[in-house]
Amino acid sequence: MPRPVTCPNCREELDIPAELRGQDVRCAACAVVFVPPTTDVVPTARRQPASTGPDYDDRGRWDDAPRRRRPRPRGSMLWVWLLLFGVVGSCVFGCGGLLALGMFMEFPNFQGYDSAAGRFHAEFPGKPTEREEVVDGPEPVLYLWTEFHREFPDETYFVYYTDFLARDLKPGPDQLLEKACDRAVARTPGSEEVSRQPAMHDGYPARDLVIRSPDSNGETVVRFVLVGKRLYAVGITGEFVNADSQRVRHFHERFRIEADGPAKKK
């Protein structure tokens, strides 16, 4: 048997039959086509294979050895999947987070509060504080405040009330409620009155007043309720407050007068 032939490209020693010497053969190791010599000399390569893809032409290969395939590097597609999952995840969780944040802002966790002195029940998004304040004017008025300040968003929930003297009740409920609205608008110089509508609250005469401050995009939404000689003001003020807010409606609807106090129905 002839001596092995050395591939001129990869230096692999190949056992090539004598009848194929002097013809084009393909190296089983590197797929280079060359002509093995009929004598024992080192052959030279003629050409490189045009392709090693699926359309590769194996004709002329002198043996049936399987072609070597370059291994695909592991993790080459990993970054693509990570990027895809990152984009999808940010959209899903980002939109879900914004939705949850919007719901939290619109409807916080309200907690019940009972005022023994004020004879009312209300729901605040936290524990409120009580204080007194004298409002200056042609006729100074003493208001008793119950309020809670919510930092996010920046808004204040309040209930305040005052008792009229007997002589102050002579104008009648409608005039007293209108006067309360006028006083509220006058307390904020430059404010704009958006709306004022008559209403009823648990059978008591009321007024719904909406005021927009000059330095804010938000509104003050307050409901005045006259119960006997006592006037209540129930409202919210803040940057993102408007009359159509769900939390505003909830705060007004959950406010009720206790039946066993000075605000008892007659």
Rank of each mutant, 00 (worst) to 15 (best):
A117K: 14
E219R: 02
P37I: 02
L83N: 11
E12A: 15
F240N: 03
L177D: 03
C7F: 09
P17L: 12
L20C: 00
A117V: 03
V134A: 09
V41G: 05
F255Q: 05
N9L: 10
Y232K: 04
L177F: 11
H149I: 06
T44D: 13
F158A: 06
L209A: 08
G89M: 07
G190N: 09
H201S: 01
G60Y: 11
Y113G: 02
P125Y: 09
P108N: 10
V33P: 00
V227A: 15
E13F: 11
D154P: 05
D244E: 13
P49T: 00
A117I: 00
G118P: 03
F158S: 06
T129K: 08
L83R: 14
P173W: 10
D114K: 10
L177G: 03
D15N: 15
F110W: 04
G86C: 10
Y143K: 11
V222K: 01
Y157Q: 02
L99D: 13
T220N: 08
V42W: 06
L98D: 12
R67A: 12
D168H: 08
V135K: 13
T129D: 10
D215I: 13
R11C: 12
A116K: 09
G112W: 00
G261F: 01
T52K: 13
E106N: 13
R167T: 08
A263V: 11
G53W: 10
C91V: 15
V221E: 02
S76N: 08
